[in-house]
Simulated assay, not measured.
Amino acid sequence: MKKLLMMIAVGSLMMGCGEKKEEKKGGFEMNRTKKEVKATNASGEVPVDMDNKGVGPFTDVSFADDIDQEMAAAGKAKYDMLCTACHMPEKRMIGPALKGVYERRSPEWVMNMIINPDGMLKEDPIAKALLKEYNNAIMLNQNLSEEDTRNIAEYLRTL
């Protein structure tokens, strides 16, 4: 009987010392490696870049000297409905203040950011730098038409 118990104990010990199996954890895995964003200047601020047109359908936009009041009114209505949760004209919130945006960005860049924030955040270095500056708060795609985008762009000229 002692021999039998001894053999069982030795066999259990040998089986327990076998190859370790990797535990599978439930849920998801998150990769926290940081990617370098090169669109910041030496002071860490996002630079002014009037030559960058961004990523999207707008490649050549020129504004008339006078603001189109009808377009600006339509743009203000859309802006008030969709944008004010994150943007104020003169106050930094979840997103940047938009007063004077055309002194920092080209009209094409602004309009491409409005209509195509997903593509801009993936490919545009300034959009990536702004994302980093604003604590990775992603601008949501509002699925705007080109006309709505142009109206909002016209309204931004009035700020």
Score class of each variant (00 low, 15 high):
Ala42Thr: 12
Leu121Val: 13
Glu19Asp: 03
Lys53Leu: 13
Ala77Tyr: 05
Asn136Tyr: 08
Thr149Ala: 04
Glu22Cys: 02
Pro47Val: 15
Ala77Asp: 12
Thr40Phe: 08
Pro107Trp: 07
Lys3Leu: 11
Asn151Val: 04
Val46Thr: 10
Leu98Arg: 03
Met6Gln: 11
Ala74Asn: 14
Glu147Val: 03
Leu4Pro: 04
Asn143Arg: 13
Cys86Lys: 05
Lys38Leu: 00
Thr59Pro: 03
Ala72Arg: 04
Gly54Gln: 01
Pro47Arg: 14
Met50Val: 08
Val61Phe: 02
Ile115Thr: 09
Ser145Glu: 04
Glu108Lys: 12
Ala74Ile: 04
Lys99Pro: 03
Asp51Glu: 14
Cys86Tyr: 04
Gly18Lys: 06
Met15Thr: 13
Thr59Gly: 06
Lys35Cys: 03
Met6Asp: 02
Arg92Ile: 10
Val37Met: 04
Pro47Asp: 07
Ala153Leu: 00
Thr149Leu: 05
Pro89Ser: 13
Met30Trp: 06
Leu13Phe: 13
Lys122Gln: 10
Phe58Thr: 02
Arg105Thr: 08
Met15Gln: 11
Pro125His: 03
Thr149His: 01
Asp80Ser: 12
Leu121Gln: 15
Lys76Met: 07
Gly26Ala: 14
Ser62Asp: 10
Ile126His: 05
Trp109Met: 14
Asp148Gly: 02
Asp49Leu: 01
Lys76Asn: 09
Leu144Ala: 02
Glu154Gln: 09
Gly11Leu: 11
Lys128Pro: 07
Leu131Gln: 02
Ile114His: 03
Asn41Ala: 13
Phe58Ala: 08
Met93Lys: 14
Ala77Gln: 10
Asp68Pro: 09
Ile8Leu: 15
Ala97Leu: 04
Asp118Lys: 14
Glu19Ala: 13
Ala85Gln: 14
Gly27Val: 05
His87Glu: 09
Pro96Cys: 00
Lys53Tyr: 11
Val46Arg: 09
Ser62Ile: 09
Gly119Leu: 02
Asn143Ala: 12
Met1Asp: 10
Leu159Gly: 12
Leu13Tyr: 09
Gly27Lys: 08
Ala127Pro: 06
Lys3Glu: 08
Glu19Trp: 01
Ile8Phe: 12
Leu4Asn: 07
Ile67Cys: 05
Leu4Met: 07
Gly75Leu: 06
Leu121Asn: 15
Asn151Cys: 08
Arg104Thr: 14
Ile126Thr: 01
Glu123Ser: 13
Gly11Phe: 10
Ile94Arg: 15
Asn41Val: 14
Leu156Asp: 07
Lys34Leu: 05
Gly44Arg: 07
Thr33Cys: 01
Glu123Cys: 00
Val37Lys: 08
His87Ile: 11
Gly95Glu: 05
Lys21Phe: 12
Lys3Pro: 08
Asp148Val: 06
Ser43Lys: 14
Lys78Trp: 02
Glu90Cys: 06
Asp148Phe: 10
Asp65Trp: 03
Glu90Trp: 12
Tyr155Glu: 05
Lys25Leu: 15
Lys21Thr: 15
Ala72Thr: 07
Ile67Tyr: 08
Leu159Val: 10
Lys25Arg: 15
Gly95Cys: 00
Tyr102Trp: 01
Pro57Ile: 13
